[in-house]
Design a protein around this nucleic acid. Structure first.
Length: 262
DNA sequence: TCTTTATGGTGAG
DNA sequence: TCACCCTAAAGAT
């Protein structure tokens, strides 16, 4: 479930479990055996999220750069649990063992590399240093469809395919609206809404976009949590139209033709 | 037991 | 624009 909220939650959980502790680092696959061997015994000083990138800082100056991609997972296990064959690396200390599998990126890097990664990213609404200005300027300076721009991590860092469908629905914006057709107030509201949804996602450790008064009580099933994403053919929750689906640049996007007119 | 799909991104053509 | 990478759950047979 890796959109920005997942990574920020992960950074927080890793800090809580492992900060200032000497880490036992183990690998099961050959491709990160050297990295794990080098990290083994180093003290974890911080864990930081920037968009969908995770940087785990060590006292030595080493950084572990992780990007979960589509299928990566970083799960909390017990040190006594036998890791799966797919284990890329385990970071363990005390009674916590964090197992990484399926990650698109798992590499030991230095601060210069971190800087070069961050330099390519747009502002992250979940970070203290995230500002809406550069986001608004970037969107307005391009005719590309807003849905395309919201997935472009150099425009805004942390939005994925679920949040983009949901935020466009909530804003009543058609996915193919050219960026330069949106005004600054609208984009500022979109930024704030995105930030609030992401924060809620960090808190819940899942994506729930429907407003509190609309949500059923008790346990919320995946299909109840959202307005548009993966709801093609189902009735819109705000009108009687049916949710539509199309593709933009090989990614599916769902929207309500009535609530989000062209 | 198989095939498909996925909340992502890169690099080749 | 497309093939491809990584893994695992869901869907099809």
């Amino acid at each position: 479930m890796p959109e920005g909220h997942t990574i920020h939650r992960l950074a927080r959980d890793l800090r809580n479990d492992l900060k200032d502790q000497a880490i036992e680092a183990t690998a099961r696959q050959a491709r990160f055996a050297d990295g794990a061997a080098r990290l083994d015994g180093e003290v974890l000083s911080d864990a930081e999220a920037y968009g969908k990138h995770l940087f785990v800082h060590f006292d030595s100056g080493d950084l572990l750069h992780v990007h979960l991609g589509l299928v990566g997972k970083f799960r909390r296990r017990s040190p006594s649990d036998d890791p799966s064959d797919a284990l890329r690396v385990r970071l363990a200390a005390g009674d916590a063992a964090w197992d990484l599998t399926g990650a698109m990126t798992c590499a030991l890097v230095d601060p210069d590399h971190r800087a070069s990664v961050v330099e390519k990213l747009g502002p992250d609404p979940l970070r203290r240093d995230g500002r809406s200005g550069p986001f608004i300027d970037a969107v307005q300076s391009s005719k590309r469809p807003v849905a395309l721009q919201l997935l472009d991590q150099s425009v805004i860092a942390g939005i994925g395919n679920v949040y983009r469908a949901e935020v466009l629905f909530l804003m009543g914006i058609h996915p193919k609206t050219p960026g330069d057709r949106l005004d600054a107030d609208q984009l500022d509201t979109l930024w704030t809404l995105t930030r609030d949804l992401l924060r809620d996602g960090v808190r819940r450790n899942r994506i729930v976009t429907r407003t509190k008064d609309e949500l059923p009580r008790g346990r919320i099933t995946p299909s109840e949590a959202l307005y548009a994403y993966k709801r093609a053919g189902m009735p819109c929750r705000r009108c009687e139209d049916k949710i539509a689906r199309t593709e933009i640049a090989n990614r599916k996007i769902w929207w309500c033709p009535t609530c989000q007119p062209a």
